[in-house]
Amino acid sequence: MAKGNEKKEAGSQIEKLADAPMEFVKDGRQFLSKCKKPDVKEYTKIVRAVGIGFVAVGIIGYAIKLVHIPIRYLIV
């Protein structure tokens, strides 16, 4: 009897361990399904904003890096 109990307990613990990721995935999916997703119009707006920002900052940054090229050429 006691042995059976032990077995059951051990089994339930393993089950719990296996359940944790399942529970996690379930919670995550539930959350995702409740989420508000962007529509096409909103999405294009976001992508454009981020794209312009990234490219603008990148070009300014790359301009500085271009300064390196002649300096490197002079000193190496």
Binding site: F54, V55, V57, G58, G61, Y62, I64, L66, I69
Partner: peptide, 17 residues
């Protein structure tokens, strides 16, 4: 970090060096 990542993206795409 963001500025550097943006710069690297440009350098990897349009870099002339």
């Amino acid at each position: 970090n963001t500025i550097v990542i943006a710069t690297n993206l440009i350098a990897d795409t349009f870099g002339v060096s």
